[in-house]
Design a protein around this nucleic acid. Structure first.
Lengths: 209, 209
DNA sequence: CCTACCGATCGGTAGG
DNA sequence: CCTACCGATCGGTAGG
């Protein structure tokens, strides 16, 4: 038999972290027991401790690797060298696509990271800060008036609000999809920022004149 | 001595629920023990069970009475009979004021209500639905194109995203206050909705021409 | 016979 | 990779 131990080890680990993300997202970190996770994975509880040193490390792995995905996404869009409006539009669309595919990881990031100890939580927060900064730059490029008023990070957080809040109400099987949200959020942000914070208050209009 | 027993009972109960909201907001419902709550209140743990039949009832009382505040706020603004733009502007401003004063209750509502059993959770959710419906009506009055496209509830949720997300990042002692957020959120929403979803795409402009 | 409240400890389950 | 357990702490309640 071939030595496929490392491969199956990683597969098993990924399956366990995927299931952990699912349970943490549904019930919350502290309301999920290691016994429940073991049962859901069809393995014994002690086996879980072969893949993570404790429960908190599982939470960290889920959140940190998801942040790696988001950081990579931002860098990938930056290499496209798009003009400002298209760049911000692409960022929002790619984020919503990612949320749709990693719904559980996203909820864990938003609702459970605060239960980590200082050091690992800080590691995740640093990556979050890099992503926020990238969005703030993209917003400033679209509308220089925003950063002149020192509001680029604030507007970025308002955008994250619109985008991140969807996970609390958008049903996966509902009539509206994450893809439908992208043009809506993009339209409201671009028109809103130009109208409210634009130096000349010029307008970006998706509707026919 | 006067019979002030009922008054002190209610005072004690309110003090305990206030402290419960604080701990639940900071640490989360399941990460807060009744022993910690008792210690934080300076009372014995059994005394807590004189004011609530169990831990879940404390969570329910915090969330449900906070929703009563929000429902009353919406009704109070409706009795002002303001024109559409002013009505929506007032709703947003009053909500952000309330969040600033009831920061802990708000976080508990957002992050811990899901840990309630079906029946009490549904009771809170019904009040939430009434508030969302009121915002959807206010948005539809401002821009009829939104409800014609069947997006009034969706735009209301986008607005709640901008507003509710602030509790995750806005520091109480930071340079930006909840009051500063109101014109920003209102401006982005009104300009965004008019520009993106307006039948004639007319513009609401806060900036000088 | 009630309320308000204590020190001590219950049965069960958590993470490990 | 399992059964069998641990020290500790959980939410909740006993007697007085």
């Amino acid at each position: 038999m071939a030595r496929t131990k490392a491969a199956t080890h990683d597969q098993q680990r990924n399956a366990i972290l995927e299931k952990a993300a699912e349970l943490f997202a549904e019930k919350g970190f502290h309301a999920t027991s290691m016994s429940q996770l073991a049962a859901a994975c069809g393995v014994s509880k002690p086996l879980l401790y072969h893949y993570a040193k404790d429960k908190a490390e599982m939470l960290f792995s889920v959140a940190d690797s998801y942040m790696d995905t988001l950081v990579a996404l931002v860098e990938s869009v930056e290499t496209e060298q798009l003009p400002p409006d298209a760049h911000l539009t692409r960022l929002i669309a790619r984020f919503l696509e990612t949320y749709a595919d990693a719904h559980n990881q996203h909820r864990v990031l938003v609702q459970d990271v605060r239960h980590l100890d200082d050091a690992p939580r800080q590691q995740v927060a640093d990556k979050e800060r890099a992503v926020v900064a990238a969005f703030a730059r993209a917003i400033a490029a679209v509308e220089p008036g925003v950063s002149e008023k020192g509001l680029d990070k604030v507007v970025a957080m308002i955008l994250f609000g619109m985008v991140n809040w969807t996970f609390t109400w958008l049903r996966a099987n509902g009539p509206l999809t994450y893809e439908d949200m992208a043009p809506l959020v993009t339209g409201i942000l671009l028109n809103g920022v130009h109208g409210t914070l634009g130096a000349a208050s010029k307008k970006t209009n998706n509707a026919p004149d």
